[in-house]
Amino acid sequence: MPDAFERYVYGMADFYEVSGVSDHDRRRFFNKTRTTATDGGVIGYGLSVRQTLSRTPATLRRSEVDGLNLSVSRAAMVGDADGRSVRAAPGAVQLRDLSLPAASRLEMVDLTALIAPRALVPACLLGRDAHGAVMAPDAPGARLLTAHLVGLEELAADLTDDEVEASIQALLLLAARMTGFAVRLAPTEVAALQRSVRRQAKAFIETRLAAGEAGIANDEVAKAAGVSRATLYRAFDEEGGVNRYIQDRRLHHARRALRQRSGLTPTIADIAYAYGFASPSHFSRQFRARFGYSPSEVEPLSPPRDVSMSDGPIRHEILVQWLKSLPDAPDVA
């Protein structure tokens, strides 16, 4: 599109002033974005050329966008936050109060960002003290925030508005704690953060098991959730521990495999080993303890001989498969 750059500048005018784009980059200009918007905020991803994004006094006078910009840029940034020099390495977490002047020179726009309305942002994340704050990419708190921010952006389109808004609130509480601006969290806030950790951990566990990878170490789960093992363990305390949860999900996947097998293939022993159990007898004991019957009592799912099945799924089958895909009751506020 020959006027792509001009259209971009016009579209950004009430949000950021765009400058510092070379003639070469203007000729080959591109901008790719995806966003999910709810009443609780907007979360999105952007990819574009090298540029400077500024909120000048003139921008602030005409802009109706106000609140917090929490972002992770995969490119280096240098800039200014209301007179304070700011530098951020690739992968750093950055905070900007959108009511204050700021400028960011990005080597490339490749970032994930949350824009949250002022009324919903913890007060400690707003104002001059937090404006321009940068968390180094290798800091544990930054890793945790990045995991949650990027994970939410990737999943947002598949979540309900209520789920996105709850996740945004958990992310903001996490930012308040990890940046050090909030020294103490209320019990309800701690519970919200732990729900967020569990959501990340459960998604990772389910992905691994669905791929047939039953050997899941706690260190791997903690890394995927962006937390320490101790934090992971605390998040799963009310569910009997993370090891118990993984064991329960392995048993559920094994039961599904028993239902889906053809006749006696694969064997119970094959399924036991595939889902990480030490032996068929160990699997049988654990299975009976969980479900109240033995693996050999699980009948393969097949239609009666006198029923002719046409190609393609049927409505109730689709519903049942969807229900099966739900690992457990969702964490709720």
Rank of each mutant, 00 (worst) to 15 (best):
residue 221 V to E: 12
residue 170 A to V: 07
residue 215 G to F: 12
residue 284 S to I: 10
residue 136 A to C: 02
residue 325 S to I: 03
residue 160 T to L: 05
residue 286 Q to H: 15
residue 211 A to C: 06
residue 169 Q to M: 07
residue 243 N to R: 09
residue 30 F to G: 00
residue 285 R to A: 11
residue 241 G to H: 04
residue 289 A to V: 07
residue 72 V to H: 00
residue 201 A to V: 04
residue 235 A to W: 01
residue 249 R to V: 08
residue 202 K to H: 09
residue 226 G to Y: 04
residue 214 A to T: 08
residue 287 F to R: 07
residue 40 G to D: 02
residue 54 S to N: 12
residue 72 V to Q: 07
residue 96 R to I: 08
residue 216 I to S: 05
residue 68 L to A: 12
residue 87 R to N: 07
residue 66 D to Y: 04
residue 166 A to Q: 11
residue 52 T to W: 03
residue 214 A to C: 08
residue 235 A to M: 14
residue 279 S to T: 14
residue 24 H to I: 12
residue 195 R to Y: 04
residue 147 A to S: 11
residue 43 I to G: 05
residue 84 R to I: 05
residue 48 S to N: 05
residue 290 R to L: 09
residue 154 E to L: 14
residue 294 S to E: 15
residue 328 D to A: 15
residue 14 D to F: 14
residue 68 L to Y: 13
residue 330 P to L: 10
residue 250 R to A: 00
residue 246 I to M: 10
residue 220 E to H: 11
residue 193 L to R: 10
residue 249 R to F: 09
residue 175 A to S: 06
residue 6 E to N: 07
residue 297 E to V: 12
residue 258 L to Q: 09
residue 271 I to Q: 06
residue 34 R to C: 04
residue 184 R to W: 10
residue 216 I to V: 13
residue 313 P to F: 09
residue 233 Y to M: 09
residue 74 R to S: 10
residue 86 V to F: 05
residue 301 L to M: 09
residue 182 A to G: 03
residue 209 L to F: 10
residue 22 S to K: 01
residue 101 P to A: 08
residue 82 D to F: 02
residue 16 Y to R: 12
residue 25 D to L: 08
residue 289 A to I: 06
residue 157 A to D: 15
residue 149 L to K: 05
residue 331 D to G: 01
residue 179 T to R: 04
residue 4 A to C: 00
residue 202 K to P: 00
residue 227 V to D: 02
residue 80 D to V: 08
residue 59 T to H: 13
residue 324 K to I: 01
residue 309 M to Q: 14
residue 278 A to E: 10
residue 30 F to E: 05
residue 220 E to G: 12
residue 167 S to Q: 13
residue 6 E to C: 01
residue 271 I to T: 01
residue 68 L to E: 10
residue 99 S to E: 09
residue 155 L to F: 01
residue 296 S to L: 04
residue 254 A to P: 01
residue 7 R to G: 13
residue 261 R to G: 04
residue 164 V to P: 01
residue 230 A to G: 11
residue 103 A to Y: 01
residue 17 E to P: 07
residue 125 L to T: 06
residue 221 V to R: 00
residue 45 Y to Q: 12
residue 42 V to G: 08
residue 291 F to A: 06
residue 163 E to M: 02
residue 26 R to A: 02
residue 121 V to A: 09
residue 129 D to I: 03
residue 4 A to N: 02
residue 17 E to R: 15
residue 200 Q to G: 08
residue 243 N to W: 03
residue 65 V to F: 09
residue 144 L to V: 09
residue 72 V to C: 10
residue 13 A to F: 14
residue 39 D to T: 09
